[in-house]
Amino acid sequence: MRRRRTKPPNRLARIASAEHLFLAGVVTIVAFLFQGDLRVRIAQVFAFALLATLAGKRIRWGYFVVMVSSITAFHLFAPLGRILLEIGPLAITEGALRQGLQKGFAIVGLVFISLFAVQSNLRLPGTVGGLLGRLFFYFERVLDARGSVRAKALVASIDQILFDVYPPGGTPEQAAPSPPRGEQAARTSFGGAALLIVVAGGCVVLAILF
């Protein structure tokens, strides 16, 4: 029998608030985009992957390998610079290969930064932020009821969930404020602050040096 996989713990959320993680992510993104050295950029991508794993995200490595490979492959069709290798009619050039890898790792790096910097309980300001709170309130209730969806009576079973969670014109369940989602630290600990400064500051320094 297949065992159900448990969700990995979000270790970053225990030491840093969602707002501080997001702020550090924004600084990191800017510095990462200015990184010109391919080797440094690749090393950064692996560091971001580690941080995303610490944030409880499962990395689908196959997806990202296909992503970098396909971006690089498409760039190879437009030759640029010194020829490194010729495979039939296709000339693999240094400039095109470098450009493809730079772009591929940039795209994947941005996803990894986003995975560790954006927490689901990040509070956005204004009406949209308030509506998102309500959205997650209902989302959790719909998710709780998903087990009662039956393939044989699909529409009827979905209908039942919808009537339970959002009865039209009836008395709905008490719309309590959205509960906190995930394992969120209200404040950033000293260790969390140090980690965020090292990550974001380190990327800025690397962008200046290389």
């Binding site: 996803v111 986003s114 995975l115 910097a117 954006v118 927490q119 990040l122 949209v128 998102l132």
Partner: peptide
């Protein structure tokens, strides 16, 4: 707007090209 921001928050892709 709520859908795309909600998906970005749940998937953690709010700050990436996916968003």
């Amino acid at each position: 707007l709520l859908k795309v921001i909600g998906q970005g928050l749940v998937g953690g892709t709010l700050a990436s090209y996916v968003f």
